[in-house]
Amino acid sequence: MVQPVFPVASETLLLNGPAGALEVAVDYPEPVEARPLVAVVCHPLPTEGGTMHNKVVTMVARALRELGATTVRFNFRGTGQSAGEFDHGNGEREDLRTVVSWVRAARPDDALWLAGFSFGAYVSLSAAAELQPDALISVAPPASGRGWDFGPLEIPEVPWLVVQGDADEIVDPQAVYDWIDSLPRKPQLVRMVDTSHFFHRKLIDLRGAIQHEVKAWLPPA
């Protein structure tokens, strides 16, 4: 399957995905020098209005671009200009696999990070063992049930950050902390006080938390 060329400047384009077109937004870092790093960021639940334009997703991407990463956001199947229908995480993993394969074919020498918010965190974590990213960032991972089984997830031994709001009204924060406590290898955990699921009035704090925690992981510019 022939894919479009990876753009040389920030651009939104369509890939050939497993269910048809996949809408992808590539954004280059500015004003800092680019690092050999591409971060793919996954969005929250499409059936609840989640898209690659979600404000938490765009802030995660912005935080990483300000550190020199090129970011790739994309709409899961059935969202925005992406073809297909919601597939409860299974087809969405295939969508992520397609995006990662495209990135790695175009930028084989770059580090690849996977990030995700809410449902996007579940998709990225559930694909991590197969895709073997160089780092993981999970914002409000839905470990409190809601149909997403975190029990069998295999997390590769790479740097991993979890950011969770203590006042999350959608994902039970204690369920997230209990899940982390059950893991043989635990992530770096940032607990944000008085913070809701969508980080209302806390987006700048989220940016700062991500940048502070992941700076040590960055490849040299």
Rank of each mutant, 00 (worst) to 15 (best):
Leu22Lys: 06
Thr58Phe: 02
Tyr122Gln: 00
Gly50Cys: 01
Leu131Phe: 08
Asp109Ser: 15
Asp95Thr: 08
Ser10Tyr: 11
Ala128Pro: 04
Pro44Gln: 07
Val56Leu: 03
Glu30Ser: 14
Glu23Ile: 07
Gly120Lys: 06
Phe76Gln: 04
Gly116Phe: 03
Val100His: 09
Ala25Pro: 03
Glu33Ser: 14
Gly20Thr: 09
Val99Cys: 07
Arg35Cys: 01
Ala127Gly: 11
Gly20Gln: 08
Gln132Arg: 15
Asn54Phe: 05
Ala83Ile: 05
Phe86Arg: 08
Glu85Met: 13
Asp27Arg: 14
Val123Arg: 03
Ala121Asp: 06
Leu45Thr: 13
Leu114Tyr: 06
Ala61Glu: 06
His53Pro: 05
Gly17Thr: 09
Trp102Val: 06
Pro44Ser: 11
Ala127Asn: 06
Lys55Asp: 14
Asn54Tyr: 02
Ala105Leu: 08
Arg104Glu: 10
His53Phe: 10
Tyr122Trp: 15
Asp87Met: 04
Val72Trp: 03
Ala69Trp: 00
Val32Ile: 12
His88Ile: 10
Asn16Gly: 12
Thr51Asn: 08
Tyr28Lys: 13
Leu125Pro: 01
Val32Ser: 10
Leu67Lys: 11
Val26Cys: 13
Gly116Pro: 05
Arg73Asn: 03
Pro108Cys: 12
Val26Met: 08
Arg65Trp: 01
Leu131Met: 09
Val57Ala: 09
Arg62Thr: 13
Ala115Ile: 03
Asp95Leu: 00
Gly20Asn: 09
Ala128Trp: 02
Glu130Leu: 09
Val24Pro: 01
Met59Ser: 13
Pro7Val: 10
Ala21Tyr: 05
Pro44Thr: 10
Glu23Thr: 04
Pro7Glu: 10
Leu67Arg: 11
Val100Ser: 12
Leu67Asn: 11
Pro18Met: 01
Ala19Thr: 12
